[in-house]
């Protein structure tokens, strides 16, 4: 493996590396639910989340993880969702969150 020049060094576990190739599943995720791209991580979904009373369920974070290619992390966290749909009813960007979570949880 050749060492790449970043101009700085960062612990690998800490960094998000957008130079690495994105997982192939990501494209199909966005293709099947294009509204995912509209998320601005405002946090409304997490604020209203029914599961969020008890567990670490923050949809906007799942989506950020997906965008950064951290699928493994994302899949594990999606499992807490109850699919109640409150987030979707209040999402200011019109993201079909329930559909997105369903697909995330089975990647």
């Amino acid at each position: 493996m050749t060492k790449q020049y970043f101009g700085f060094s960062v612990l690998e576990q800490r960094s998000v590396n957008l130079d690495s190739e994105m997982p192939a599943e990501l494209e199909s995720l966005y293709q099947k639910e294009p509204s995912l791209r509209a998320c601005i991580a405002c946090g409304n979904c997490a604020a209203v989340c029914s599961a969020g009373h008890f567990a670490e369920m923050q949809f906007y974070r799942l989506n950020v993880m997906a965008r950064r290619g951290l699928l493994h992390e994302m899949v594990g966290k999606a499992a807490a969702c109850m699919l109640c749909g409150r987030c979707q009813m209040s999402c200011p960007r019109g993201v079909n969150i329930r559909h997105a979570v369903l697909m995330m949880s089975q990647l």
Binding site: A51, F54, A55, A79, A80, C81, M82, L102, S105, Q106
Partner: peptide, 13 residues
């Protein structure tokens, strides 16, 4: 379609 979707709500008290 969602046969592989796995949810777990074992965190519920």
């Amino acid at each position: 379609i969602f046969t592989k979707a796995r949810f777990s709500h074992s965190y519920l008290p």
